[in-house]
């Protein structure tokens, strides 16, 4: 492969990695606080993508980028209520129950989507979909550049919010010391719901950034969850920085894998990374014990 092609591959991988970061940050945040893998992650992403799709269609005709604040806030509210009304209520304080409930939710959501929206893939047509930016030998589709920049910006804002607000500090406190949190008057159940809400709000934002260049079908969330899961394992479970670096790395790996082995076979690079991480550094790049 020539240096130019590799450069273009790395740039395109980075661009794709932005959204992976966003999806993985949501997953890792929920894992860090609730100590469970959110099996509903892919299905909720899929639902958010359908939301973007239907908002774009007549009669609303809302541009996906314009819809971002609305879909993100909507995803937060939906997930907050989902946690308070279903997940937290039926978990009875047991983490393994949460695992099963989110798995159940994903099955329900996937099949409801299949029933109501059919299995057809849907896309939206935005005027800027075909615009490109030239960066040296690399051609970057404009929507991918937007998704990359916006994803990183959202992650940075979330990171600052987690570092400097009381609620952000409370989320981090609850992640490691629930009893201590209760004793300073933190409403732990509420923090769980907020953390779940934020994790899913990341998916809402990701859906808006994805739809200009991706399709939605009832199963379209799964591809991202596999990638997000690999990202989280690569970066270190529960680590913010890990999700960031991991997501970008996975994007590059996927892109270069595609270049070397072709679009289909190139996908093998991702599970390969997954296996290598588990073999060589099971805690991930930034993971503690």
């Amino acid at each position: 492969m020539s240096a130019d092609i590799v450069f273009a591959g790395v740039v395109n991988g980075l661009m794709a990695g932005g959204v992976y970061v966003l999806v993985a940050v949501g997953l890792t945040l929920i894992y860090g606080v609730l100590h469970i893998i959110n099996f509903a992650h892919g299905s909720l992403l899929m639902l958010a993508m359908y939301a973007v799709y239907f908002l774009f269609r007549k009669p609303l005709g809302l541009d996906p980028y314009a819809a971002l604040p609305l879909v993100t806030a909507g995803a937060f509210a939906f997930a907050y209520l989902l946690y308070r009304g279903v997940i937290g209520r039926f978990a009875h304080g047991k983490d393994e129950n949460i695992l099963l409930i989110t798995l159940g939710l994903s099955i329900v959501a996937d099949n409801a989507a299949l029933f109501f929206f059919t299995g057809d893939t849907q896309t939206i047509d935005v005027s800027y979909a075909g615009r490109f930016l030239q960066l040296g030998p690399a051609l970057i589709p404009l929507p991918k550049l937007v998704s990359f920049l916006a994803s990183l910006l959202i992650c940075a804002l979330l990171g600052l919010w987690m570092a400097f607000t009381d609620t952000g500090k409370a989320i981090r406190a609850v992640a490691k010391e629930r009893q201590g949190a209760r004793l300073v008057g933190i409403d732990v159940e509420n923090i769980f719901a907020i953390a779940y809400g934020i994790g899913i709000a990341c998916l809402g934002a990701a859906a808006c950034l994805l739809m200009p260049f991706f399709y939605v079908s009832p199963s379209s969330g799964h591809a991202f969850v596999l990638i997000a899961f690999t990202t989280v394992v690569l970066g270190g479970m529960g680590s913010f920085a890990g999700a960031l670096i991991g997501g970008l790395l996975i994007g590059i790996v996927e892109s270069l894998g595609g270049l070397r082995f072709g679009e289909q076979l190139g996908q093998i690079a991702i599970p390969l990374v997954f296996i290598l991480v588990l073999l060589l550094r099971p805690t991930g790049l930034f993971g503690g014990r």
């Binding site: 009381d166 500090k169 409370a170 981090r172 406190a173 992640a175 490691k176 010391e177 009893q179 201590g180 949190a181 004793l183 300073v184 008057g185 933190i186």
Partner: peptide, 23 residues
Amino acid sequence: PEGRRVFPNLSVRENLELGSYRR
């Protein structure tokens, strides 16, 4: 509480700040 139950992943300052989370 017994066993202190401080927030190990937060700085000393953040621990103290969270002491005034509710009051």
